[in-house]
Design a binder for these strands. Structure first.
Lengths: 157, 157
DNA sequence: CCGATATTGATGCAGTTGCATTTACATGGA
DNA sequence: TCCATGTAAATGCAACTGCATCAATATCGG
């Protein structure tokens, strides 16, 4: 029943290594900029952003698939955000297991402070590369890899 | 002196998010397969591979830039590989600070055992996607992002 | 040769992650 | 109603990471 194992083509291997290198490289660059600006790490941004997009609050389990984080990872990340005073937990109406997350003023503020640093790092990374000119095609190809729909999620503003 | 901050274009943001999602997704998939097969994590493969490519041994500081790992990260990873019996450290001739890393038989063997699982996960991830057909272009675009030359490094064989 | 400086690799510590399990509540069926 | 099962979120523990620093060389200038 075992397939005899068809190795991936060299082209696929080349894409794979390029993908791993590029993503690590870019992420490291952004993280470094944030840290050097005395701002929280990249993960925080995404969570703050998602919560901000939900003015009526959002539950952790709704956040989880959007952020591609494991349940316990998100749980602890939220705990840190709460400890930092950026997020509040409120009881979830109708389900006492759940909680509704809201941003505090400080949360909104730090998210806004992060964006210029974040965005500048992105701009710096892409401008002048071939990837900039071909961005739409590149995005489409990458999205094709993750199975399904390109999430509406975007760290804009 | 501060630039007024030009936000990245929506196209760049789209590429960025697609890149982050795709890379995490694929890496998770490969890691999951390796773990489920009772094999070591992906990082180990790269190190084992690089050491295997150097029949006369290689020094950690030479490995470091190839693997995009921080010095202390590599140091401890090597320590784990040594503890697992996959790698040996030998004194580096001519520089008593350094060490020469060699693969043991077990190391060669586990690296070989990982490859089918690793490769199959890659194949599964790419086959049938648009990225497969456009692999060379995609790789070129991604390599354009990491500044310089596309390393000869490839996890083949 | 000597001392200042640079390089190689390791390590103590605090913070973070993965894994498995736990606690609390919800839901559906007898 | 009561129990079995399912879901939401948290947590104990071990492993791993980042950061700063260290010890042991090596190298370079005088």
């Amino acid at each position: 029943m075992d397939e005899p194992f068809t190795p991936p083509s060299t082209e696929i291997v080349a894409v794979w290594t390029a993908l791993m290198r590029a993503s690590r490289h870019l992420r490291d660059a952004v993280e470094a900029d944030l840290k050097q600006a005395g701002l929280p790490p990249l993960d925080w941004y995404d969570v703050l952003w998602e919560i901000e997009q939900a003015p009526d609050g959002i539950r952790p389990n709704a956040l989880e698939p959007r952020l591609l984080l494991p349940q316990y990872g998100l749980s602890r990340l939220i705990a840190r955000l709460v400890a930092a005073g950026y997020v509040t937990r409120r009881p979830s109406p109708g389900d006492r297991r759940g909680q509704l997350l809201h941003l505090t003023e400080a949360g909104r503020s730090v998210r806004r402070a992060m964006w210029p640093v974040y965005g500048a790092a992105l701009t710096r990374s892409f401008v002048g590369t071939a990837a900039e000119a071909e961005a739409p095609r590149l995005a489409a190809l990458l999205n094709g890899l993750t199975g399904k729909a390109p999430r509406p999620q975007a760290p804009i503003a």
